[in-house]
């Protein structure tokens, strides 16, 4: 049911397990639809070119850059293709580990990294350090040193594999006088 003037039409999309009605142009990206139509602003535009990963969401458990996806590929599907955003995470281990390891500063890239790591946990819980670093290379963080992020991911995967949880508090740095 396309409007001849605007090129827009109504469709159904399922995000975070909720079915929503959206009005689309064929050229709308999933990032645009999530943010501007559905109010899910956790996914961020950083480059709209696939370079930075701030817009990463999960599609059927696989991290994807929503700035490179057309929303049309996700609407009116049966069964619906599962789209998950950071707003769909609820007390996930990855969120806890990011907090514990100071894995963010400004927070702008964080939603994308969280979804990337959640995808890694679901896809490759046995990933070793080299592999998890490879995964992290798809996204950019300009604030942290990456060591914090890597520690957080190791924490997530250890938890997933049933290892003992790490301490709840970051270790303060002892001063030298």
């Amino acid at each position: 049911m396309q409007n001849a003037n605007t090129g827009r039409a109504e469709h159904l999309i399922t995000v975070n397990g909720e079915q929503r009605r959206v009005s689309l142009r064929p050229a709308d990206t999933l990032l645009y639809t999530l943010r501007d139509e559905l109010g899910l602003t956790g996914a961020k535009p950083g480059c709209e070119n696939g370079d930075c990963g701030a817009c990463t969401v999960l599609v059927n458990d696989v991290p994807m850059k929503s700035c490179l996806l057309l929303t049309m590929e996700f609407v009116d599907q049966d069964p619906p293709r599962s789209v998950e955003t950071v707003e769909g995470l609820d007390g996930a281990e990855v969120q806890r580990q990011f907090l514990q390891h100071w894995a963010f500063q400004c927070g702008y890239c964080t939603s994308g990294f969280l979804m990337l790591v959640e995808g890694l946990r679901r896809q490759r819980p046995e990933a070793n350090r080299d592999e998890l670093v490879d995964w992290l290379r798809s996204n950019i963080c300009r604030c942290t040193s990456y060591a914090e992020l890597i520690h957080a991911v190791e924490g997530v995967l250890e938890r997933e594999r049933g290892a003992a949880p790490a301490s709840d508090h970051p270790t303060p740095v002892p001063p030298t006088r």
Partner: peptide, 24 residues
């Protein structure tokens, strides 16, 4: 003028160890 041509650090390019000491 893009992040694929203006290169910034990505994971794995950071040092194996960061040593930070604070004098007070």
């Amino acid at each position: 003028d893009q992040l694929r041509t203006y290169k910034v650090m990505r994971a794995g390019e950071q040092p194996d160890a960061y040593v930070v000491e604070l004098v007070e």
